[in-house]
Design a protein around this nucleic acid. Structure first.
Length: 513
RNA sequence: GCCGCGUUGGUCAAGAGGUUAAGACGCCUCCCUUUCACGGAGGAAUCACGGGUUCGAGUCCCGUACGUGGUACCA
């Protein structure tokens, strides 16, 4: 694929604000950016939008890096790997924004506003009516507020000289249709009169998102700007800023991604726990409230599956295939095939994706993850070869990595509780005798092989005139504790003679009582 | 309220004027298996509503309803 030399190199960015956990929608935005960039041999930039100092959260930035690493996504440029367009934290670019704000003022596209928070509150209260429950600071009321448009230049100069706190707001044009092309939504249009005079530069000298995103996208030579649809409403502000500052011809191509919804409306970061499934990529503990939220990783998801399922939520290749590696996604992804409408997240389907990936992955790939999970539960794994055999035996029964525990602990310890109720109703003295005799026959067995164990079992059953099927379930309960797991003789073979015999004996006591 | 965006089974979705309206998840039945899964075969279930345009509309247009986002010196 040759890129014409006239064509600009594709550069995209993900620009999260480090204020908390990274949720599903955020990860998907990262993913679509990344897939698009890699498909076009472009750059994927990670920029930290930390312009709101009041919302600084310790550890949140590191958490973002960790999540991307887990997903297997490495930015080409980031605060950790600066390229030639740094710095990559907006707080460190603070001084760059002011000149653009001033430039806007000089051109008459923006103005100083001296209204205090109390003034704004009063305005909202005073202008609030039944038909207009949330009045905006816009063309209809700005002349009634304290700003460089409503006051004389002398007054303004005085206030400025006295270092009166102020913000800089964009002056939305009177009567203009602002239209732009969106890669997903196609033509989108807004009436300027209905958009408010957004703050561009805050009282503390920091830019708001609106100014920062435009300035940084320009300075960082971003060619395609993908973000969540929640930004669509403020797009006209950004389009205008591009027009005023850098020229529409340099504006990146926009794509507003559909939202990911929870079971009952929008997916909220806060009630992660309420849904019964994670919303964050990884575990997150809010350092302020100490509130803990479990992540997909720790819940037992594989990064391959997580990336796969997220990619399919809002995009579809048009093929029937649903299982893709990230490399396949890079090849197949197309922004044109991203849906317009939001998608409800389905946890059941998410688990299916994970199960498919567990089946798909090699035992060797699974080993470190499963081993880690076991050791976290204080089960030491000393023999990797043995453990791999077990993983192979139970992997298709596991939807989550954590499922391996229940599916395989009995290979390492006798069940603490056995499902006595499953055998008791059909239990007979003959069956009890069978297991006593079986025990002594197994005791004498020299080679502990699946086939020999099975042979002894079946021969004895025939001798006793009991159907082997009626004995296999009790045997399973004795060894495993419940009605699940692989072939019972396979299990006996793997746990060894001593364990098999002791489990039969202790189970017999419980069942016979 | 106003503005924006959206609407194919319960969920994810294919579909770009003419199809018996794919497929997947979940659910149900059966087969395989004297466990549970995996696998296999079936089944129930959909174009929000109303008007147009057209020989013909899930596909185009207009309304309505519903959902969702925005309406902060938050991103």
């Amino acid at each position: 694929m040759m890129m014409s030399s006239m064509e600009k190199k594709v550069r995209v960015r993900f620009a999260p604000s480090p204020t908390g956990g990274l949720h599903l929608g955020g990860v998907r935005t990262v993913l679509y950016n990344y897939l698009f960039a890699k498909q076009h041999q472009g750059d994927f930039v990670l920029r930290i939008e930390d312009t709101d100092q009041t919302r600084f959260v310790e550890g949140a930035e590191q958490y973002i890096y960790d999540c991307l690493t887990w997903c297997g996504i490495t930015p080409d440029e980031s605060p950790l790997q600066p390229g030639q367009f740094g710095p990559y934290r907006q707080s460190e670019r603070k001084e760059m924004y002011r000149q653009y704000a001033n430039q806007l003022i000089e051109a008459g596209y923006a103005y100083y506003a001296f209204d205090t928070p109390e003034d704004l509150e009063k305005m909202r209260a005073d202008f609030k009516t039944e038909s207009n429950p949330s009045p905006q600071y816009d063309g209809s009321i700005r002349m009634q507020m304290k700003n460089s448009l409503s006051m004389s230049s002398n007054e303004v100069q005085d206030l400025l000289n006295q270092h009166t706190p102020y913000v800089i707001r964009i002056k939305m044009p009177e009567n203009e249709t602002i239209a732009f092309h969106d890669l997903i939504h196609h033509e989108v249009r807004f009436e300027s009169a209905l958009v408010d005079d957004k703050v561009l530069l805050k009282g503390d000298g920091m830019p708001t998102y609106h100014l920062a995103v435009v300035v940084d996208d320009f300075l960082m030579k971003i060619t395609h700007a993908f973000r969540g649809e929640e930004w669509l409403s403020s797009a006209p502000v950004h389009v205008l800023l591009w027009k005023y500052l850098f020229g529409l011809e340099h504006m990146p191509q926009w794509a507003h991604l559909p939202l990911i919804m929870g079971p009952r409306g929008k997916l909220s970061k806060r009630d992660g726990a309420k849904y019964g499934f994670p919303v964050f990529a990884m575990n997150w503990t809010d350092p302020r409230s100490n509130e803990f939220t479990e992540g997909f990783k720790e819940k037992g998801f594989l990064p391959e599956a997580f990336v796969n399922l997220l990619a399919m939520l809002g995009w579809n290749s048009g093929e029937e295939k649903e299982l893709y590696t990230i490399d396949e996604l890079i090849e197949k992804f197309s922004i044109e095939r991203v849906h317009k409408s939001g998608a409800k997240f389905d946890y059941e389907k998410a688990k299916w994706f994970n199960q498919e990936w567990i089946k798909k992955l090699d035992v060797d790939d699974l080993l470190p993850l499963v081993k880690d999970m076991f050791e976290n539960k204080d089960v030491r794994i000393s023999d990797d070869v043995y453990f791999k055999t077990i993983i192979h035996l139970v992997k298709e029964r596991c939807a989550l990595i954590s499922d391996f525990y229940d599916q395989a602990v009995y290979f390492f310890m006798a069940p603490t509780e056995i499902d006595v109720a499953a055998v008791k109703p059909k239990w007979t003295i003959e069956k009890a005798n069978f297991f006593e005799e079986l025990s002594s026959k197994l005791e004498d067995l020299n080679e502990w092989e699946v086939s020999t164990i099975e042979e002894i079992f079946k021969n004895l059953a025939a001798e006793k005139n009991i159907k082997p099927g009626e004995l296999q379930l009790p045997m399973r309960i004795m060894l495993v504790g419940g009605k699940f797991g692989p072939a019972v003789f396979e299990i006996a073979h793997l746990i060894g003679k001593a364990d098999t015999l002791s489990r039969i004996q202790s189970a017999l006591i419980q069942i016979n009582e």
